[in-house]
Design a protein around this nucleic acid. Structure first.
Lengths: 193, 193
DNA sequence: AACCTGGCTTGATCCAGATCAAGCGTATTT
DNA sequence: AAATACGCTTGATCTGGATCAAGCCAGGTT
């Protein structure tokens, strides 16, 4: 389980051998079956989850009962309701497993502690968050600026894995469009070439 | 100029007196007149800008010539085309001054260097970015989930300063709606109470 | 083998919000 | 003080994509 995490960290910063050992103390492994919740709306999000295997989704549900995908995460991704985790407010997001999943959980206290014990983790998270900001900024501008078809094409460019790995109705929700619309868009694109 | 920056940093981490002095070496002050560009689309974004006074906007322009607001920043905010700054790719955003502005610029090299010279800056930026992610996540979900009126009401809640300080057409662009629509929404809300 | 269940498609209709257009007041420029 | 520009409003019209509805296919269950 930890190899995936350690190699992910070492892509961004370098860890000593003792760091690699110590680091493991801060995490708790957790297995999730398909459809199982990691977090439910209204609960306090107690952990950040690093996914070492499997596939999760983060989403909220509006008053009409429609789900809106926020983030998908698989091997090498971190997930949480970040606001709830940081502030202690109730979560607005649900997180559940689309495939059987293995994750490593780190609590708020351990998240604070690990950056003290292993200072380079501040830098690791800083770099992780930098990249996350760029991704979210792109998705936001796409959401504001692009037509439905442009949103789909941009996602195909930037995150083909999402399109390959997830059912089409969840992709549509991630793009903020109706599943029927996505179906028609794909048909149009296919017929054009 | 530096007092604003230093007090902003000290809200998140603590700095020694020598850190406060050394820190200044890494920044270059820059004044901007109203309408002046800090960054133009296609250029490489060489700096992060900390705004000590004034008001800037980050936006892009689509093929039809419409502007789409990405971020507004005033005293105590950081702005850049983050992707361009980090990757060295050409900027997709423009940044210009809505009011006369004083900023402190830090280059990529100095951004790397300052976290080495003053390690607590890694933590400062990590915390800054954490908060930025939460904000962007909220705005993204609002953009995907909410009606035009809900978007406006949510912004009134979360960032009343934006509504107070910026002309209505820029607020509309920030929300991803037409200025006429925003005008009508405000009229409706006013007439309802 | 019959029966669900969930994901996908296709057609018909509807509507929130965009676009187009005109006029108005206030601020800025000359 | 005239001229121009800019932001805002209001009305009329249009449209991209949502919603509603029905049927299809593949996998999984009993």
């Amino acid at each position: 389980m930890f190899e995936v995490l350690i190699s992910h960290i070492q892509q961004k910063v370098s860890l000593s051998d003792t760091d690699k050992i110590r680091l493991q103390e801060f995490f708790v492994p957790k297995k999730l079956r398909k459809k199982q919740y990691l977090l439910q709306e209204g609960d306090i999000c107690k952990n950040l989850a690093f996914i070492s295997k499997g596939l999760l989704r983060t989403y909220n549900v509006d008053e009409q009962g429609n789900e809106h995908m926020s983030v998908f995460g698989w091997e090498g991704w971190w997930l949480s309701d970040f606001n709830s985790f940081l502030s202690g407010e109730p979560a607005v997001f649900n997180i559940d497993a689309i495939e059987d999943t293995e994750a490593l959980l780190i609590s708020k206290a351990n998240y604070e502690a690990i950056t003290v014990a292993i200072p380079v983790m501040d830098r690791y998270f800083r770099i992780l968050y930098q990249n996350s900001i760029v991704t979210k900024e792109r998705r936001l501008m796409s959401s504001i600026t692009d037509t439905a078809e442009e949103k789909y094409l941009r996602l195909s460019e930037s995150s083909p894995q999402i399109i390959e790995r997830l059912p089409q109705n969840l992709v549509a929700s991630y793009l903020g469009i109706a599943p029927e619309t996505l179906s028609r868009i794909k048909k149009n694109i296919a017929s054009r070439k």
